[in-house]
Write a protein that binds this DNA or RNA. Structure first.
Length: 338
DNA sequence: AATGAAGGCAACCGCAGAAGG
DNA sequence: GCCTTCTGCGGTTGCCTTCAT
């Protein structure tokens, strides 16, 4: 059970590997196999600990290592498997039983009938990729992207940290009041000049602008309501619609205003949140923790919207947050907020 | 052009568990 | 059954590069 003392030994080199060291290690392993990692450095003439040699080999020198950017398929796989394996096995928590029983078909069990650890398990599904590489990719790219999309990277569920966004939400609420006052004819209401300017639209198409602004406000109102619903349901542990919302129509500049205004009824109750999303711009459904086999909203959604921003590969630009792209393309009003 | 910030990645550290004596 | 050794994993760090000011 004790730790290997190899790295505690003094005099062993640490830090980046030189090409000469790489060559020594490579040649030795190609000729003899790695055998015991502990004795390998001495036999190969390397002033490194075995652990360091093993890492260098498995993460860098192995001939089957695939270098370069992750493909969209690989990203999907990582997202999918991470949503399942996001929490590594912990015998203290009963939750793993659920995970084990539900993803049995997804990953191989180890010799004890347990699932292997997360990154290595994911790596087994991505030939040529190392667990370290996947871990780094997750930490530097995918995790951030999920966060920006409003998902908790650990649970793959919508974030519930309502208070983190509170200042923005308050600002939005204020803005909404101002717009409402302006739309009502400006009867004494104090309206921010920039908002008034936006509302008046600057000449032709002013009426359409007002309608679009109204649509935006409705969308933002949904956001506020969504956040509140999330707060209300988070404590109870109830799954379901949890305040998710999906704009049912793309709002394009110069598009049909009436059609654009057909947003889904956000106030229709959580259960209806997905009733209207049968199109490419749907948001990922909430993961139901009671059924982990379907707990992959992000990856599933990405698959369903392969042409969308998720994944960032292929031909599409990799906007981290897809909703405004669908709803308000290139609109700084939304993109600034998000 | 210089400088600081941010991002990306390789490598290290420490823990956990299997294997073997 | 206990102890030691060895391997593998996840988390974290620190360096290097790129980007922004």
């Amino acid at each position: 059970m004790g730790r290997s003392p190899c790295c505690d030994e003094s005099g062993l080199k640490k830090g980046p590997w030189t090409p000469e060291e790489d060559e020594k290690l490579l040649q030795y392993i190609q000729k003899n196999g790695h055998g015991s990692w502990r004795t390998l450095p001495r036999l190969a003439g390397l002033n490194r600990c075995g652990k360091s040699c093993r890492l260098r080999w498995t993460n860098y020198l192995r001939p089957d290592i695939k270098r370069g950017k992750f493909s969209q398929d690989e990203e999907q796989t990582i997202l999918h498997l991470h949503s399942i394996l996001g929490n590594k096995y912990d015998p203290v928590h009963r939750s793993m039983h659920r995970i084990r029983s539900s993803i049995r078909h997804e990953t191989e069990l180890d010799r004890n009938g347990l699932f292997p650890r997360r990154w290595s398990a994911i790596a087994t599904h991505l030939p040529g990729r190392t667990d370290n590489e996947i871990k780094n990719f997750w930490n530097t790219h995918l995790k951030k992207r999920l966060i920006q999309m409003g998902f908790d990277p650990m649970t793959h569920r919508p974030r519930t940290d309502f208070f983190a966004a509170l200042p923005q939400l308050i600002a939005l609420a204020t803005l909404r009041d101002q717009l409402a006052a302006a739309a009502a004819g400006g009867g004494g209401g104090v309206v921010d000049p920039s908002v008034a300017a936006q509302l008046q639209g600057g000449g032709a198409g002013g009426g359409a602008d007002v309608a679009i602004q109204a649509a935006k406000m409705q969308y933002l109102q949904c956001l506020l309501q969504s956040a509140a619903t999330t707060i209300a349901t988070a404590g109870s542990g109830v799954g379901g619609g949890g305040g998710m919302l999906a704009p049912a129509m793309m709002i394009t500049s110069g598009g049909d205003v009436e059609a654009n205004l057909r947003l889904i009824g956000c106030g229709a109750g959580a259960g209806d949140a997905y009733a209207c999303h049968g199109h490419g711009g749907a948001l990922p459904p909430l993961a139901d923790l009671s059924d982990v086999t379907t707990a992959n909203p992000v990856a599933d959604w990405c698959s369903a919207t392969a042409s969308s921003s998720c994944g960032g590969g292929g031909g599409g630009a990799s906007s981290p947050f897809p909703w405004p792209e669908f709803c308000f393309p290139d609109d700084p009003f939304i993109t600034d907020f998000l």
